[in-house]
Write a protein that binds this DNA or RNA. Structure first.
Lengths: 186, 186
DNA sequence: GCGTATTGTTGGACTCCGTCTAACAATACG
DNA sequence: CGTATTGTTAGACGGAGTCCAACAATACGC
C-alpha cells in the first residue's frame, strides 16, 4: 500500500532553495525553472509541490487561516462574540512559526517583492476577515456590521504579524502583539 | 502642438466591450485578444489603454483611492483624527460612480471572477488602509495602532462599497452606507 | 500644396507562468 | 519476477504582459 517511487525533494527543500534565490537575485528575476534546477529537479516537479511561485511564502500562514476558519465555523454563537473571536485568533496564530514569510517580510526590499507582498498580504487579510465575518453574522450582527468588524480584527492580525516579523520573529512576542493589536478594538 | 494620429478607441469603449465579453463567456475565457478584436483594434492597443486585463474594473476606484491618499497626505494632524478621516473618506468615495466595478460585483458569478475579485478587492482595501495609516501616525498614534485603525476604516469603506453595488448602485445611498459603516467604529 | 514632427497603431517576437499529458523510473508487494 | 502504485520528466500548449521597430494619420510651418 505504501509503495511507489520515493520523493526526490520536499516542500521544505524547495522553499529553502527558492528563498535563497529570491535573496540573491530578487523575486521577479528568479524563474520557477531556476528554483527547480537548484534543487536538482524538473520544473514540472516544482508544480507538484506548489501551486504557484508565490505560494512558497504562504503555505504556513494559509494553514493557520484554515485553522481559524474551521475553528470559527464550528464555534457556537456567543453573547460575547468579541471574546470568542479574540480567543480563536490567538489560538490560531500564536502557533505560527517563523518561516519563509517572515524572511520575505524582512527582506522584501532585497527581494524586490513589495508589490507582490502587499497584494498577497492583502488577500490573506481578506481571508481572515472572511473567516470571522460569518461567525459575527451568526451572533446576530447585520451584514455591514459583521464585515466592518471582521475587517478590523483581520487588520489587527496582519498588523501584529508584520510587527512581529519585522522585530525578528520571536515566538512569545507574536501572542503579545496579537493581544495588543486586538485590544485596540473596543 | 496637438497634432498626431487621432485615437481609434477610448478606455470607455474598451471597458464596455470587455464587460460585454466577460458577461457573455466569463472572465477567464475572455482573452485580451478577444476584447481588442471586438473593439476593432489590435491587442497591442489594449495595453496602450490598460496595464492589465483586470485593470478594466479598477481604474475608477483606483482614482478615488488616489484622491484619498493625496487628500490625507495634505491634511494637518488634528486632535480629532477620526473626524478628519471620516470626512476625507466620504469626500473621496461619495463621488464614486457606478461603473465596470459595480457590474462586476453584481455579476461576479456569471463572470466567474470570484477569486480574482476578492484578490483585487483585498488589494484596494489594503491601499485605502495604506492611505489612512500614515495620517494616523502623524497624529501621534504608534505604528501598530495606526495600522489597526486604518484597517478598520478601510474595511468599512469596502463593506459599504460592496453593499452599495449589490443593492443596485444608486448615488446617495453610497454616502449613507459609508456613514453607517464608518459609524460602527467607535 | 509639401515636408516634417508628433502621436497613435500595429504585428511580431519574446519570456514566463501555469496546465496538461503521455511516457518513464523507482519503489513495495504478491 | 511481474505488477500496481506513486513520483518524475519532457514537451507542447495557451495566455499575460513587455518590447520594439515599422507604419499611419493628423497638425503645423513653409
Amino acid at each position: 500500500m505504501s509503495g511507489g517511487r520515493p520523493h526526490a525533494v520536499s516542500r521544505e527543500l524547495i522553499a529553502e532553495a527558492a528563498c535563497e534565490l529570491f535573496l540573491e537575485q530578487g523575486y521577479e528575476r528568479t524563474t520557477v525553472a531556476h528554483i527547480a534546477r537548484r534543487v536538482g529537479v524538473s520544473r514540472s516537479s516544482f508544480f507538484n509541490y506548489f501551486e504557484s511561485k508565490s505560494e512558497v511564502f504562504w503555505s504556513g500562514l494559509d494553514e493557520r487561516i484554515g485553522f481559524l476558519d474551521a475553528f470559527l465555523a464550528a464555534a457556537c454563537p456567543s453573547s460575547q462574540p468579541a471574546a470568542v473571536v479574540t480567543d480563536a485568533v490567538r489560538e490560531a496564530f500564536s502557533r505560527f512559526a517563523p518561516d519563509a514569510l517572515a524572511l520575505a517580510l524582512v527582506n522584501s526590499d532585497a527581494m524586490g517583492i513589495v508589490p507582490e507582498l502587499t497584494q498577497e498580504m492583502a488577500t490573506r487579510q481578506w481571508r481572515i476577515a472572511a473567516a470571522i465575518s460569518p461567525y459575527l453574522r451568526r451572533t446576530g450582527q447585520d451584514a455591514l456590521a459583521a464585515e466592518v468588524h471582521a475587517a478590523a480584527y483581520a487588520g489587527a492580525v496582519i498588523a501584529a504579524l508584520r510587527a512581529w516579523a519585522l522585530a525578528g520573529a520571536g515566538r512569545e512576542r507574536l501572542d503579545d502583539l496579537l493581544r495588543r493589536a486586538l485590544g485596540m478594538l473596543r
